[in-house]
Amino acid sequence: MIGALWVVVLVALGALAVYGIALSALNRPPDVWTKRVAGAVTALLLVQAVIAAVQVFGGVTLPETSTFLIYLVVSVCVLPIATQFATAEPTRWGGAVVAVGAIATAVAVWRLDGLWAAGA
């Protein structure tokens, strides 16, 4: 885990959640930027997951390795699924769906740090 990247990921997820809620509040369906930003945040999550997985399989020992790895997989998978589901029906509610995905992912990323710190 890299502290700076973790902070960037959380800020990006928070910004995406705010953007999604704003879209719903303004009665606008998800636009092309929703997909682009969600894609960029997913790329960041993937980078973080690869780095953390390499460290875990490279010998870093954690008290709950399996739990950590499950959270790692969840942190990468939820946002793309939510974005797909949000854009499948282009109504004002799509933005809120993206926000739910972003918030759930943020909780998983937050927990990742706790599970990592417990082993350090």
Partner: peptide, 29 residues
């Protein structure tokens, strides 16, 4: 599954995933 129902489904999906995964780890370990 339409309109605001999609937001509800998204939240339910997240809870389905987290509750099941959590229980799976608890029962397994």
């Amino acid at each position: 599954s339409s309109g605001p129902g999609r937001v509800l489904i998204a939240v339910y999906g997240v809870f389905a995933l987290s509750a099941t995964a959590r229980a799976g780890v608890q029962i397994a370990t």
